[in-house]
Write a protein that binds this DNA or RNA. Structure first.
Lengths: 344, 344
DNA sequence: GTAAATTATGAAAACGTTTTCATAATTATG
DNA sequence: CATAATTATGAAAACGTTTTCATAATTTAC
């Protein structure tokens, strides 16, 4: 069969030989360098197609110090928000001729550190990161930045003044919108299940919550504000705690949709009418929230817009980098919106 | 600031200079080649850490003809089944030191062809593909296979005898299980909304449906079997058609969950009781099916198992390739299971 | 028609590894 | 202790491009 047929890759030299030209000219023709004759260019392109030539990215990258590859570190690919964002990023980057290496930290800090190292070794042209919820020190990205590789954070971003670009949803406003919505639809005793405050996400969402409560002069009961890992089980436990007391909340702002779904489940199981006895609002507009009965109110984060912004900023930085222009490192904030549904 | 500090990458030569050794020895030490003294190895590792050295993958790959990178072409990252599969693939490959370049065809054939070219140019060590629903010719993968690069298809796989490995769910059995379940719970007039027959997925699911109907000697009405793009809108239209007649179905086997969800929505909007008037079963066990009311019966495809199988087969092939052993190209079929819920 | 400017090409070095081949250092064998 | 076998290291080539510098070919200017 194809046992004896040596698997050969055609190189630039094969084209050069076939056309009696130098490899330099072939390279220039393929990269359509201005100083190459139109006819030569056509000849080369034709011969390249004929030989089934494809540029060897490793050789090209080694010499030119560009990989045309962007790295992405994300907690989990299958989380709805991140899946949407990275779908957009991949499609957008493709338009500019960039590949995307996608890695998952599984929300584990040591994995994130390892991946930063690996992607550095792979000499990605840029790196996009949504941190783990525990990342508070960002020095594992230093070597990238020091080498002039743009690093862009999104969603879960550095809290301190780490000198990188970041793009995030308006979590403060999201928290504020959710809470004022609950208040304006008549709630007075509002509970809040949020994540650990090590992440900017929950700091901001909770701050928005507090701001709204304060503005409407409603008390925030300490026992009604939870900061925990936002899993289904934890949410159920928090609900059990909330509803074991005689004074019970009449609304819940859940800092993610999984928690909101679990809360609704708890309510159904325990004869708590939603929204009559308890209003619920979640965060992220996961597709499940629109399909559950009653449909859950939530906050839309526009993952597609986030993805597009990331890529446009990234392309800009890559262009500037070539011109050795100093990078502006301001944060970009993507607006959020309230989605009203039956649960509130 | 760091304006004047030249962004330097340390190379193997810097380590060699620092230790008065040759680059060859450094390379061997870093790849822990057997013929290098324990002490030297330690010295090198220590110095490498001290200098913050990281192997340049492009140089390494160019010379050794290995990229330690696997390419993946998938219709859309955000489809639940694929998101789960590729989450698993990425996590598994990471254990073996492989990176993953993920690309989306957006279910467009020309894009798939382009991506095959790009990933070939990137000299990926292997390629994993879930084809578009229209792919019936697979010659754009020839150049990969001819160069000895393993290509593994999953889920949407070649129908003809294309000489590659493939891994798929047992779609025939899935269709059969779904249909017999509907029959055994008392349905007689069963409709079936399926996808275009250009894809193995729907050929097999529909074949399973027909087999079950035949076995129970139930008639298959031609007007009750749809082959169309499985979108929400198309599903609603098909439902409208089905329920515009005087004789109406008492059960529906939808070949994906989006269609099942849309059908349930239609039923709710039109006062059709599920499961009393109409039983519904979907396909894939999308998270939404368990959360909707009534919860939808469906077929579990075990995406995690699919992902694990892909990687284990892949690693095996990469190992064999080094030993120049001929690749066995049998198909692997992952079992499916029926998930019974309230809709049937 | 010659000089100057422009355009097109080639030779060779460079990118940072890995690997082959040769050789030096060490250990085992008798 | 000499020789053989083994182990550790180095020199140099190689991987396939891109790019610098030089030079050849062509066009423009006068």
């Amino acid at each position: 069969m194809s046992k004896d047929k040596k698997p050969q890759q055609n190189t630039i030299l094969d084209i050069a030989d076939a056309l009696k030209l130098s490899p330099a000219t072939i390279s220039r023709a393929l990269n359509n360098h201005p100083h190459v004759k139109e006819k030569t260019k056509n000849d080369v392109l034709k011969m390249a197609a004929q030989l089934g030539y494809r540029r060897n990215q490793m050789a090209s990258g080694l010499r030119s110090n560009k990989t045309h590859t962007v790295g992405l570190i994300v907690p989990r690919i299958s989380m709805f928000f991140h899946a949407e964002v990275l779908t957009t990023i991949q499609n957008e980057l493709h338009k500019y001729g960039y590949n995307l290496i996608i890695c998952q930290s599984n929300d584990v800090l040591s994995m994130e550190e390892e991946l930063a190292d690996i992607l550095y070794a792979s000499r990605v042209d840029a790196l996009i990161v949504a941190c783990t919820l525990q990342t508070t020190d960002f020095s594992h990205f230093d070597k990238l930045l020091n080498t002039g590789i743009p690093v862009i954070f999104y969603d879960r971003v550095p809290l301190n003044s780490y000198p990188a670009t970041y793009i995030k949803g308006d979590d403060f406003r999201g928290g504020y919108l959710a809470t004022t919505h609950l208040i304006e639809t008549g709630s007075q005793r509002i509970a809040h299940i949020s994540g650990k405050l090590s992440s900017n996400l929950y700091q901001d969402r909770t701050a928005g919550f507090r701001k709204a409560m304060e503005q409407y002069q409603l008390p925030v009961k300490a026992e009604w504000v939870f900061h925990q890992e936002l899993t289904h089980e934890n949410a159920k436990e928090a609900m059990a705690e909330l509803f074991s007391e005689t004074v019970q909340p009449d609304a819940l702002f859940a800092a993610n949709d999984v928690t909101a779904i679990a809360a609704l489940e708890y309510a159904k199981e325990n004869g708590i009418q939603v929204p009559q006895d308890l209003k619920i609002i979640g965060y992220s507009n996961d597709p499940r929230t629109s399909i559950i009965t009653p449909a859950l109110s939530t906050i839309e984060q526009y993952p597609t817009k986030v993805g597009q912004k990331i890529v446009s900023v990234l392309i800009e930085q890559l262009k500037n980098r070539m011109q050795e222009v100093g990078l502006e490192q301001k944060p970009y904030v993507i607006p959020v919106d309230l989605i009203r549904r039956m649960s509130s």
